[in-house]
């Protein structure tokens, strides 16, 4: 952990890292607005007689989303109020529990020095890169093991053994091989993201109803056409829950990687502030991790809704 790396990501990165995060955020707010009327129009056009009672009409989904957002905000707001009351009452010294205002000021202070956006950007970038690699390889190997008997026989035992290695055990090896650079962190995050996806995808593909496969084969589907029209849609829901697990794992491993060896990022902020007794910054880092984790998970949730409508 040397000083000079703090500088180089700051000078090069923030602009384009900011760009990476921005469209994802926009997409999140834009998506439901476009989707719902489209769905409603579709339902209206295609159902002349009684509309299908199932995955229902647009307005009800909208109501539920509204309720969900409001309902989901109740507990965090309650916690915030409780936090404020406890810290102003002086029950707990601020060296143990900083007030919300102190945390906010810490955020403003870091933001003013350009560090907040840098840390958020670099952590998000590491998570997304590691997640993309890990989940991608997990999907591919999961498909091979789940679909091919030979792949299962050849690969499953080895991957099972590698999965049995506690992922943090890779850290010393990764540091020896790749030093304390970006590679070692991204590889560690990839390992974290790989296994949930691999495990869920191979299992789900192996257990697609054999009768359904047989019925599809009877109608001439085989190989790639069988995979894309039957096996893939049948496993989409489990694939996505695997992806969500993997994303959570990716954040977990990000913090692990950054706690151990980093000079920027939220994990670094945590360990650095912990060492310097800056409890306000520790709180800030934890809150940011919660927000970012929830945000990326919500984006994946939107992808899930889209994918299920598209294939399943």
């Amino acid at each position: 952990m040397t000083r000079h790396d703090t500088i180089d990501p700051a000078t090069v990165a923030p602009s384009d890292r900011g760009d990476v995060a921005a469209p994802a955020g926009n997409g999140r707010s834009r998506a439901p607005a476009v989707r719902l009327p489209a769905l409603r129009a579709l339902a209206a056009a295609d159902a002349p007689v009684p509309p299908p009672a199932g995955p229902g009409s647009g307005s009800r989904i909208a109501d539920q989303t509204w309720l969900r957002v409001l309902g989901g905000a109740v507990v965090p707001l309650g916690l915030l109020v409780a936090w404020q009351i406890i810290s102003t009452s002086g029950m707990v010294p601020t060296s143990r529990l900083p007030s919300p205002e102190m945390v906010w000021n810490a955020a403003v202070d870091l933001a003013g020095r350009g560090l907040l956006s840098e840390y958020v950007a670099i952590s998000t970038q590491r998570v997304l890169t590691g997640f993309a690699f890990g989940a991608g390889i997990g999907l591919a190997l999961g498909a091979i093991v789940g679909l091919s008997r030979l792949g299962d026989i050849l690969l499953a035992p080895t991957l099972g053994a590698i999965r049995a290695v506690p992922s943090l055990a890779w850290v010393p090896l990764l540091i020896l091989w790749f030093k304390i650079g970006e590679e070692s962190k991204i590889i560690l995050i990839s390992i974290g993201a790989f296994f949930p996806v691999y495990t869920v995808v191979s299992g789900a593909l192996r257990h697609v109803d054999r009768e359904l496969i047989e019925a599809s084969r009877a109608f001439g589907l085989h190989g790639m056409s069988l995979f894309t029209t039957v096996q893939l849609p049948a496993v989409i829901p489990s694939v996505i829950s695997g992806l969500r697990l993997a994303l959570a794992q990716a954040w977990l491993f990000l913090v692990a990687a950054e706690l151990i060896a980093a000079s920027a990022g939220l994990g670094f902020l945590l360990s650095d502030s912990g060492n310097n007794g800056r409890i306000d910054r520790v709180f800030l880092a934890i809150i940011l991790l919660a927000l970012l984790g929830k945000l990326t998970d919500s984006i994946l949730g939107l992808f899930e809704r889209w994918a299920i409508r598209r294939w399943a």
């Binding site: 109803d209 009768e211 359904l212 019925a215 294939w311």
Partner: peptide, 12 residues
Amino acid sequence: VFQDYSRSLFPW
């Protein structure tokens, strides 16, 4: 046409 319609139609 199979016996078990619930497992021969695509539920999605």
